[in-house]
Design a protein around this nucleic acid. Structure first.
Length: 468
RNA sequence: GGCGCCGUAGCCAAGUGGUAAGGCAGGAGUCUGCAAAACUCUGAUCGGCGGUUCGAAUCCGCCCGGCGCCUCCA
């Protein structure tokens, strides 16, 4: 095993802690996925990317990562929305899941190891609830729901660092009179006429939101996990409730060693959210060709901080990313020397890699890791000839960027079949330039630019690329 | 009302005790037929006030401003 000194900020303790896995070399990571009732927005994409980056780095560090990401595929909002659309809740959920899978693939998010769904965990969920009732941690109100009894768990509030008493003060507008305590939450929700329902000892109904995660973790990852992740908006009540459910019947073993939460994506100063209606969908982002640009934005600030999405920051990210792409543009992996060249650039690579690793070891400090990559890019660009040392450094740059999930490829052309014609125009223009027909050559360049093609001249002839 | 986070150059953003990484934008150069790209040079004393310290962006207190959670939410 390598002597890794990785540290992670743990929401549970509020501190940065050395990362130690339960099993050597193996990481069990569970990340809360979306409730699939509507198109996902880029806040969801951000969260998926953050944990993708964490996963990639853990794998880079030699860990085997078992990554589970759930889908909440039964819930009030799904039912409401499906009925608005005139389709079944199943259908809606399935469509949204397929879309999520396709979009995260384009965003270069590595597929999770397993994708559990609430509706496929009903047995486990019911068993858990039964156990919670029999141990006095939950109660069934006949004709109503099954609730978790928050006062039965003395650690309630330990994740979000609040006390039950403090939460009551300015809290809810409406409290279900069936609850013993206002903070008690639903484990099993009785179905109304026409709603999706499963038979249970407490009547037909469906699982409450929080219980599915406890069940999935127990069934798919078996007991305690290393990392539990999600957006910071899930700390309370979702993750707090998960802890109480799982730990109250697990004899005090911690559900997860490290609780990791990403900051919220903001749009015009406020949290991006479906219910608030201020959001940019992943589809819109991808239509702009902004998948990798967005990842670059995410990498540009620490994952725990809020990130503001806006045209200015988007453009800045695009330009920065273009610089890195330009640095490895002409790289052909076949030209990369197998041996480390004896050259100052190779020393620079060593130095950059070491800075990259220290940064990532320090609670996944991606802004600092990126800074190291930009320094390497500058050193590479300083070289005028594509020597083996340059190829070596370019490959290293691309590899390290790859650990962050950046592909560093040229943007794809929108019209894929026009390439040969652009080639032709650029060649003709080269000949015009050779004949010193600059006026005509400039006009071609201007016209191509208007069509989204950048032409760059050099002593070896012109090259062109699609603008992002 | 309770809990927590944040406020660093025009913009984004690292940095938690020893005199401020990186990116974008801007300015001046080099290269180029011109441009683009690239390269070189170029900018901040860290929201305000007070305190601790030999020394603070970094610790403490107060104030101002912003955000998140306390209700479904990545």
């Amino acid at each position: 095993m390598s002597t890794v000194s990785l540290t992670i900020t743990n929401t549970l303790t509020g501190r940065k802690e050395p990362f130690e896995t339960i099993e050597p070399g193996k990481v069990k990571m569970y990340v809360c996925g979306p409730t699939v009732y509507a198109e996902a927005h880029i806040g969801h994409a951000m969260s998926a990317m953050v944990f993708d980056i964490i996963r990639r780095y853990l794998e880079y560090r030699g860990y085997q990562v078992i990554h589970a990401q759930n889908f909440t595929d039964v819930d009030d909002k799904i039912i409401v929305r499906a009925s608005e659309l005139g389709i079944s809740p199943d259908r809606l959920a399935e469509d949204m899941i397929q879309e999520w899978m396709a979009q995260t693939a384009i965003l270069n998010v590595k597929p999770a190891t397993i994708y559990p769904r609430a509706t496929q965990e009903i047995d486990t969920i019911q068993n858990l609830i039964e156990k919670l009732i029999s141990t006095g941690h939950a109660y069934h109100v006949p004709g109503s729901d099954v609730f978790y009894r928050v006062t039965s768990f003395e650690d309630y509030g330990k994740l979000s660092h609040r006390k039950l008493d403090d939460m009551l003060a300015g809290s809810r507008i409406y409290v279900d009179p069936n609850k013993e305590h206002p903070m008690d939450f639903v484990l099993w929700k009785a179905a109304k006429e026409g709603e999706p329902a499963w038979e249970s000892p407490w009547g037909p109904g469906r699982p409450g939101w929080h219980i599915e995660c406890s069940a999935m973790i127990q069934r798919h990852l078996g007991g305690q996990i290393d990392i539990h992740g999600g957006g910071s908006d899930l700390v309370f009540p979702h993750h707090e409730n998960e802890i109480s459910q799982s730990e109250s019947i697990n004899c005090g073993r911690g559900l997860a060693r490290y609780w990791v939460h990403n900051g919220m994506l903001q749009l015009s100063g406020e949290k991006m959210s479906k219910s608030e209606g201020n959001f940019v969908t992943i589809r819109e982002l991808l239509d702009m060709g902004g998948g990798e640009i967005f990842r670059f934005m995410v990498l540009g600030s620490h994952y725990r901080s809020p990130l503001a999405f806006g045209q200015e920051t988007y453009d800045a990210a695009r330009r920065g990313l273009e610089r890195l792409i330009g640095t490895v543009r002409d790289l052909d992996r076949r030209d990369v020397p197998g041996e480390r060249p004896d050259h100052p650039l190779a020393d620079e690579v060593d130095d950059v890699r070491s800075r990259f690793e220290s940064a990532m070891d320090d609670d996944f400090n991606t802004p600092v890791a990126l800074a190291a990559l930009f320094d390497l890019a500058r050193s590479i660009n300083r070289e005028s000839e594509p020597t083996p040392a340059v190829r070596y450094a370019q490959a290293a740059l691309q590899d390290l960027a790859g650990v962050l999930g950046l592909r560093l490829r040229e943007p794809e052309p929108r019209t894929s079949d026009s390439g040969p014609y652009v080639d032709l125009l650029v060649q003709v223009r080269d000949e015009l330039r050779a004949a010193r027909q600059f006026e005509l050559a400039d006009r071609i360049r201007d016209r191509l630019s208007a069509l989204g093609v950048s032409v760059e001249d050099s002593s070896e002839g012109a090259r062109w690329r699609w603008n992002a």
